[in-house]
Design a protein around this nucleic acid. Structure first.
Lengths: 141, 141
DNA sequence: TTTTTAATTTGTAGTCATTCCAATTTAAAA
DNA sequence: TTTTAAATTGGAATGACTACAAATTAAAAA
């Protein structure tokens, strides 16, 4: 399914307007696997919208998260990264350059300790891998 | 091994002094499974050290992390939680009350997708579970 | 097409966790 | 006991994110 179309429909169903700024953000996220931050989105928008406000960017991101078009990643303590792929998958972050890549796999349920479910109703689970990416390893000789 | 003793030795080996404030922080973390924040530690210290500074708390926490006596958790986007158990284990956070509990298990290496290791040298992996704890479920009827 | 109206954008100011810095105090070596 | 390098303190700064009020605008209604 097309990300822009789906997201547009979600906004309309929620009674939200399709503004040029919103559409521009939808386009920036379409097929985007770089896990951008609010700052990244803001910078990309300043080309076409020199007067764009940080508040606008944060508002749009918040709406997209609420409507299920974006997922917030907790992998980076410094800032929130956003992922337009809301399907169940995980991430690896390079501790040298900060790059985040997708890790497409499913934690097998039987592997999760049973006593967790006795104390807790688990809604979802995020696995964060930390290490060094190839290009940083080569740079570091 | 005793946490206070080990941590004290690490500080001394690194040429760092054992101040009353530092020892008090070591004691607060000894056997502590509540995953406190800097604020929690600060509050606990104000009883005995009414003039304790946030900078001191943060300095001590940073040294303890560097010396391997504490692990920083990335499970909560709002603030850093600290765990004196630096062994490989994972966490579950209640999205209602914020409580964090330990999840003692090891992700079986063969379960991790091979292509990750082709792009990445993995140093460590943190699994974060999110959901609702028993007491919050009961409160919420 | 024009009008209307509620929603959106914008800029500024505020919040909150965390860090920086310089002056004072202190652990612990001599 | 003296000395000194290191630690503590308080206040100010940083940086991501949020709140708010005024100006603008999407899009429904006329």
């Amino acid at each position: 399914m097309d990300f822009i179309k789906t997201t547009t429909e979600r906004f309309q169903s929620a009674g939200l307007k399709i503004t040029p700024q919103r559409l521009a953000v939808f386009k920036l996220f379409d097929g985007n696997k770089t896990h951008p931050t609010a700052e990244d989105i803001f910078s990309a928008l300043t080309r076409d919208y020199p007067h764009i406000s940080f508040t606008t960017v944060y508002n749009i991101l918040k709406s997209m998260v609420q409507l299920g078009s974006l997922r917030e990643l907790t992998i980076d303590r410094e800032r929130i990264h956003y992922d337009p792929d809301t399907s169940s998958h995980h991430h690896a972050m390079c501790t040298s350059c900060g790059k985040i890549i997708d890790v497409m796999f499913q934690l097998p349920l039987p592997k999760i300790p049973k006593d967790l479910f006795e104390q807790f109703t688990v809604d979802f689970c995020h696995i964060n891998f930390y290490g060094t990416c190839r290009s940083c390893q080569q740079k570091g000789k």
